[in-house]
Amino acid sequence: MTTVAPESDVRRHELAEFLRSRRERIPPEQVGLVRGRRRRTPGLRREEVAQLSAVGVTWYTWLEQAREIQVSPQVLDALARALLLDASERTHLFSLAGVMDPAPPAQCPSVTPALRAMLDQLDPLPAYVQNSRYDILAYNTTYGRLLGDLDRVPPEDRNCLWLAFTDADWRAAVVDMPEARRMMAAKFRASMAGHLTEPAWKTLLARLEATSPEFREVWARHEVVGQGGKVKYIRNAHVGLLHLEFTNLWLGPTGGPRLLTYVPLDEETRERLERLRDLSPATV
Protein backbone atom coordinates (compact mmCIF):
# COMPACT_ATOMS: atom_id res chain seq x y z
CA MET A 1 0.00 0.00 0.00
CA THR A 2 1.40 3.37 -1.04
CA THR A 3 1.31 6.15 1.54
CA VAL A 4 0.95 9.73 0.31
CA ALA A 5 2.72 12.38 2.40
CA PRO A 6 0.52 15.21 3.74
CA GLU A 7 0.63 18.38 1.67
CA SER A 8 2.20 20.30 4.59
CA ASP A 9 5.14 17.85 4.67
CA VAL A 10 5.66 18.18 0.92
CA ARG A 11 5.63 21.96 1.16
CA ARG A 12 8.16 22.04 4.03
CA HIS A 13 10.59 19.79 2.15
CA GLU A 14 10.19 21.77 -1.07
CA LEU A 15 10.79 24.98 0.91
CA ALA A 16 13.90 23.50 2.56
CA GLU A 17 15.38 22.40 -0.77
CA PHE A 18 14.58 25.72 -2.40
CA LEU A 19 16.28 27.71 0.38
CA ARG A 20 19.33 25.44 0.23
CA SER A 21 19.62 25.80 -3.53
CA ARG A 22 19.36 29.60 -3.38
CA ARG A 23 21.92 29.77 -0.54
CA GLU A 24 24.45 27.62 -2.35
CA ARG A 25 24.42 29.69 -5.53
CA ILE A 26 25.53 32.96 -3.85
CA PRO A 27 29.30 33.49 -3.54
CA PRO A 28 30.15 35.24 -0.25
CA GLU A 29 31.85 38.10 -2.10
CA GLN A 30 28.51 38.98 -3.72
CA VAL A 31 27.07 39.98 -0.33
CA GLY A 32 30.19 41.56 1.09
CA LEU A 33 31.57 38.55 3.01
CA VAL A 34 35.09 37.15 2.98
CA ARG A 35 35.44 33.68 1.45
CA GLY A 36 38.37 32.47 3.58
CA ARG A 37 40.62 29.49 2.89
CA ARG A 38 38.73 26.71 4.67
CA ARG A 39 35.30 27.17 3.09
CA ARG A 40 33.85 23.88 1.88
CA THR A 41 30.23 24.93 1.46
CA PRO A 42 29.34 26.11 -2.05
CA GLY A 43 27.90 29.57 -1.72
CA LEU A 44 26.85 30.88 1.68
CA ARG A 45 26.84 29.03 4.98
CA ARG A 46 23.62 28.72 6.97
CA GLU A 47 24.96 30.99 9.71
CA GLU A 48 25.77 33.63 7.09
CA VAL A 49 22.22 33.59 5.75
CA ALA A 50 20.95 33.86 9.32
CA GLN A 51 23.26 36.81 9.94
CA LEU A 52 22.26 38.61 6.73
CA SER A 53 18.54 38.17 7.43
CA ALA A 54 18.80 38.84 11.20
CA VAL A 55 17.26 35.50 12.27
CA GLY A 56 18.56 32.84 14.63
CA VAL A 57 20.99 30.27 13.24
CA THR A 58 19.14 27.40 14.91
CA TRP A 59 15.79 28.59 13.58
CA TYR A 60 17.13 28.91 10.01
CA THR A 61 18.77 25.49 10.27
CA TRP A 62 15.44 23.97 11.30
CA LEU A 63 13.82 25.66 8.29
CA GLU A 64 16.32 24.01 5.94
CA GLN A 65 15.74 20.71 7.75
CA ALA A 66 12.00 20.93 6.93
CA ARG A 67 11.01 20.97 10.58
CA GLU A 68 7.45 21.92 11.47
CA ILE A 69 7.95 25.53 12.60
CA GLN A 70 5.98 28.73 12.07
CA VAL A 71 7.41 31.38 9.77
CA SER A 72 6.22 35.00 9.58
CA PRO A 73 5.90 37.19 6.48
CA GLN A 74 8.55 39.52 7.93
CA VAL A 75 11.11 36.71 8.26
CA LEU A 76 10.39 35.45 4.75
CA ASP A 77 10.80 38.98 3.44
CA ALA A 78 14.21 39.20 5.16
CA LEU A 79 15.27 35.82 3.74
CA ALA A 80 14.17 36.83 0.24
CA ARG A 81 16.36 39.92 0.45
CA ALA A 82 19.33 38.07 1.95
CA LEU A 83 19.17 35.39 -0.75
CA LEU A 84 18.83 37.99 -3.53
CA LEU A 85 15.61 36.42 -4.86
CA ASP A 86 14.06 37.87 -7.99
CA ALA A 87 10.31 38.48 -8.27
CA SER A 88 9.46 34.95 -9.44
CA GLU A 89 11.63 33.33 -6.78
CA ARG A 90 10.14 35.53 -4.08
CA THR A 91 6.61 34.55 -5.12
CA HIS A 92 7.65 30.89 -5.06
CA LEU A 93 9.15 31.27 -1.56
CA PHE A 94 5.96 32.71 -0.08
CA SER A 95 3.81 30.16 -1.91
CA LEU A 96 5.81 27.24 -0.51
CA ALA A 97 5.62 28.70 2.99
CA GLY A 98 1.85 29.21 2.68
CA VAL A 99 2.20 32.85 3.72
CA MET A 100 0.87 36.00 2.04
CA ASP A 101 3.60 38.28 0.72
CA PRO A 102 3.40 41.70 2.44
CA ALA A 103 5.11 43.33 -0.53
CA PRO A 104 4.14 41.40 -3.68
CA PRO A 105 5.82 42.27 -6.98
CA ALA A 106 4.22 45.34 -8.54
CA GLN A 107 4.22 43.89 -12.04
CA CYS A 108 2.09 40.96 -13.13
CA PRO A 109 3.50 38.81 -15.98
CA SER A 110 0.05 38.63 -17.60
CA VAL A 111 -0.08 42.43 -17.95
CA THR A 112 2.18 43.25 -20.87
CA PRO A 113 3.13 46.77 -22.02
CA ALA A 114 0.81 46.28 -25.01
CA LEU A 115 -2.09 45.43 -22.71
CA ARG A 116 -1.39 48.49 -20.58
CA ALA A 117 -1.39 50.61 -23.73
CA MET A 118 -4.75 49.09 -24.68
CA LEU A 119 -6.19 50.04 -21.29
CA ASP A 120 -5.05 53.64 -21.82
CA GLN A 121 -6.52 53.71 -25.33
CA LEU A 122 -9.90 52.59 -23.99
CA ASP A 123 -10.24 55.71 -21.83
CA PRO A 124 -12.78 57.14 -21.08
CA LEU A 125 -14.33 53.66 -21.05
CA PRO A 126 -13.46 52.22 -17.61
CA ALA A 127 -11.30 49.13 -18.11
CA TYR A 128 -9.13 46.92 -15.95
CA VAL A 129 -7.43 43.52 -15.81
CA GLN A 130 -8.52 41.13 -13.06
CA ASN A 131 -7.74 37.53 -12.18
CA SER A 132 -10.23 34.95 -10.96
CA ARG A 133 -9.45 35.87 -7.34
CA TYR A 134 -10.72 39.43 -8.02
CA ASP A 135 -7.22 40.96 -7.74
CA ILE A 136 -6.99 44.14 -9.83
CA LEU A 137 -3.79 43.72 -11.86
CA ALA A 138 -3.93 46.90 -13.96
CA TYR A 139 -6.45 49.65 -14.76
CA ASN A 140 -6.88 52.85 -16.72
CA THR A 141 -7.54 56.35 -15.43
CA THR A 142 -11.34 56.27 -15.62
CA TYR A 143 -11.68 52.93 -13.85
CA GLY A 144 -9.31 54.13 -11.13
CA ARG A 145 -11.85 56.89 -10.37
CA LEU A 146 -15.07 54.98 -11.01
CA LEU A 147 -15.68 53.54 -7.52
CA GLY A 148 -13.40 55.76 -5.47
CA ASP A 149 -9.71 56.63 -5.76
CA LEU A 150 -8.02 53.32 -6.53
CA ASP A 151 -4.58 54.94 -6.67
CA ARG A 152 -4.82 55.59 -2.93
CA VAL A 153 -5.65 51.97 -2.11
CA PRO A 154 -2.60 49.93 -1.01
CA PRO A 155 -1.62 47.44 -3.75
CA GLU A 156 -2.31 44.46 -1.47
CA ASP A 157 -5.92 45.69 -1.01
CA ARG A 158 -6.67 46.23 -4.71
CA ASN A 159 -9.11 43.36 -4.86
CA CYS A 160 -12.72 43.90 -5.94
CA LEU A 161 -14.17 41.45 -3.44
CA TRP A 162 -12.20 42.93 -0.55
CA LEU A 163 -13.17 46.50 -1.48
CA ALA A 164 -16.84 45.62 -1.99
CA PHE A 165 -17.08 44.33 1.57
CA THR A 166 -14.71 46.72 3.37
CA ASP A 167 -14.36 50.04 1.52
CA ALA A 168 -16.90 52.79 2.22
CA ASP A 169 -16.47 54.49 -1.18
CA TRP A 170 -17.09 51.27 -3.10
CA ARG A 171 -20.09 50.40 -0.93
CA ALA A 172 -21.62 53.81 -1.65
CA ALA A 173 -20.91 53.80 -5.38
CA VAL A 174 -22.56 50.54 -6.47
CA VAL A 175 -26.32 50.75 -6.68
CA ASP A 176 -27.85 47.58 -5.16
CA MET A 177 -24.58 46.70 -3.46
CA PRO A 178 -26.11 43.82 -1.39
CA GLU A 179 -26.99 41.93 -4.58
CA ALA A 180 -23.63 42.77 -6.15
CA ARG A 181 -21.77 41.44 -3.10
CA ARG A 182 -23.85 38.26 -3.10
CA MET A 183 -23.02 37.60 -6.74
CA MET A 184 -19.33 38.34 -6.26
CA ALA A 185 -19.09 35.94 -3.33
CA ALA A 186 -20.87 33.25 -5.36
CA LYS A 187 -18.46 33.72 -8.29
CA PHE A 188 -15.50 33.65 -5.91
CA ARG A 189 -16.71 30.36 -4.41
CA ALA A 190 -17.12 28.85 -7.88
CA SER A 191 -13.61 29.94 -8.88
CA MET A 192 -12.04 28.84 -5.58
CA ALA A 193 -13.01 25.21 -6.18
CA GLY A 194 -9.90 24.88 -8.32
CA HIS A 195 -7.62 26.68 -5.83
CA LEU A 196 -8.65 25.30 -2.44
CA THR A 197 -5.10 24.68 -1.19
CA GLU A 198 -3.44 27.80 -2.60
CA PRO A 199 -2.19 30.21 0.10
CA ALA A 200 -3.27 33.44 -1.62
CA TRP A 201 -6.87 32.21 -1.95
CA LYS A 202 -7.01 30.94 1.63
CA THR A 203 -5.49 34.17 2.93
CA LEU A 204 -8.05 36.36 1.14
CA LEU A 205 -10.90 34.20 2.42
CA ALA A 206 -9.57 34.36 5.99
CA ARG A 207 -9.19 38.15 5.82
CA LEU A 208 -12.75 38.59 4.56
CA GLU A 209 -14.22 36.26 7.18
CA ALA A 210 -12.28 37.99 9.96
CA THR A 211 -13.18 41.53 8.83
CA SER A 212 -16.69 41.51 7.38
CA PRO A 213 -19.84 40.13 9.09
CA GLU A 214 -21.67 40.72 5.80
CA PHE A 215 -19.22 38.47 3.97
CA ARG A 216 -19.56 35.73 6.58
CA GLU A 217 -23.34 35.80 6.20
CA VAL A 218 -23.22 35.65 2.38
CA TRP A 219 -20.44 33.02 2.33
CA ALA A 220 -22.44 30.72 4.57
CA ARG A 221 -25.08 30.37 1.82
CA HIS A 222 -22.72 28.30 -0.37
CA GLU A 223 -24.05 29.89 -3.56
CA VAL A 224 -22.13 29.48 -6.82
CA VAL A 225 -22.56 31.23 -10.19
CA GLY A 226 -20.42 31.50 -13.30
CA GLN A 227 -18.81 34.58 -14.82
CA GLY A 228 -20.74 36.78 -17.22
CA GLY A 229 -21.60 40.33 -18.25
CA LYS A 230 -24.19 42.48 -16.54
CA VAL A 231 -25.82 45.90 -16.66
CA LYS A 232 -24.83 48.08 -13.71
CA TYR A 233 -25.76 51.40 -12.19
CA ILE A 234 -22.90 53.18 -10.44
CA ARG A 235 -23.29 56.43 -8.55
CA ASN A 236 -19.97 58.22 -8.85
CA ALA A 237 -19.25 60.87 -6.23
CA HIS A 238 -17.96 63.36 -8.85
CA VAL A 239 -20.15 62.96 -11.96
CA GLY A 240 -23.35 61.29 -10.73
CA LEU A 241 -25.29 58.22 -11.87
CA LEU A 242 -23.76 56.05 -14.62
CA HIS A 243 -25.63 53.39 -16.63
CA LEU A 244 -23.09 50.79 -17.79
CA GLU A 245 -22.74 47.29 -19.18
CA PHE A 246 -19.56 45.37 -18.39
CA THR A 247 -18.09 42.59 -20.48
CA ASN A 248 -15.25 40.07 -20.00
CA LEU A 249 -12.47 39.47 -22.51
CA TRP A 250 -10.51 36.41 -21.38
CA LEU A 251 -6.73 36.69 -21.68
CA GLY A 252 -6.24 32.94 -21.33
CA PRO A 253 -8.34 29.91 -20.36
CA THR A 254 -11.72 30.72 -18.85
CA GLY A 255 -11.18 31.30 -15.15
CA GLY A 256 -7.84 33.03 -15.65
CA PRO A 257 -7.02 36.74 -16.05
CA ARG A 258 -9.47 38.81 -18.04
CA LEU A 259 -9.93 42.32 -19.36
CA LEU A 260 -13.15 43.93 -18.15
CA THR A 261 -14.67 47.00 -19.79
CA TYR A 262 -17.63 49.18 -18.85
CA VAL A 263 -19.57 50.47 -21.86
CA PRO A 264 -21.99 53.42 -21.44
CA LEU A 265 -25.58 52.60 -22.31
CA ASP A 266 -26.67 56.18 -22.97
CA GLU A 267 -25.14 59.44 -24.16
CA GLU A 268 -25.38 61.11 -20.76
CA THR A 269 -23.28 58.34 -19.21
CA ARG A 270 -20.69 58.66 -21.98
CA GLU A 271 -20.38 62.41 -21.34
CA ARG A 272 -20.05 61.83 -17.60
CA LEU A 273 -17.29 59.27 -18.15
CA GLU A 274 -15.37 61.83 -20.21
CA ARG A 275 -15.72 64.34 -17.38
CA LEU A 276 -14.54 61.72 -14.89
CA ARG A 277 -11.44 60.96 -16.97
CA ASP A 278 -10.60 64.65 -17.29
CA LEU A 279 -10.87 65.50 -13.58
CA SER A 280 -7.77 66.94 -11.98
CA PRO A 281 -6.00 64.36 -9.76
CA ALA A 282 -6.36 66.79 -6.86
CA THR A 283 -10.15 66.65 -7.28
CA VAL A 284 -10.49 62.89 -7.05
Rank of each mutant, 00 (worst) to 15 (best):
E267L: 14
P253S: 13
G32Y: 07
Q30F: 05
D169Y: 06
Y60N: 06
R171M: 10
R25N: 02
W219N: 07
L146K: 05
T254G: 13
S88K: 14
W201K: 06
V129Y: 14
L76T: 10
A164V: 07
R12S: 04
L137A: 12
F165G: 00
V55N: 09
E156V: 15
A206Y: 08
D86W: 11
E24Q: 15
R38M: 01
V10Q: 08
V75Y: 06
L208N: 00
A66I: 04
V263P: 06
D157E: 15
R90S: 06
V57C: 05
T3P: 05
L205A: 10
L249M: 14
R207Y: 03
Q107G: 06
F18V: 13
T247A: 15
F246G: 02
D169K: 13
A193L: 13
W250C: 11
A127Y: 00
A220N: 13
A168M: 03
I69K: 09
R235G: 02
T142I: 10
T91D: 08
T2Q: 09
F18H: 13
R133V: 00
M192G: 05
G252P: 07
R221S: 10
E17W: 07
H195N: 14
P199W: 09
D278F: 02
L204C: 00
E47C: 12
L115Q: 02
S132Y: 06
P213D: 03
K202I: 12
S21N: 13
T283P: 01
E14I: 08
P126E: 01
Y233N: 07
V153T: 14
A117Y: 09
T91V: 14
T112Y: 08
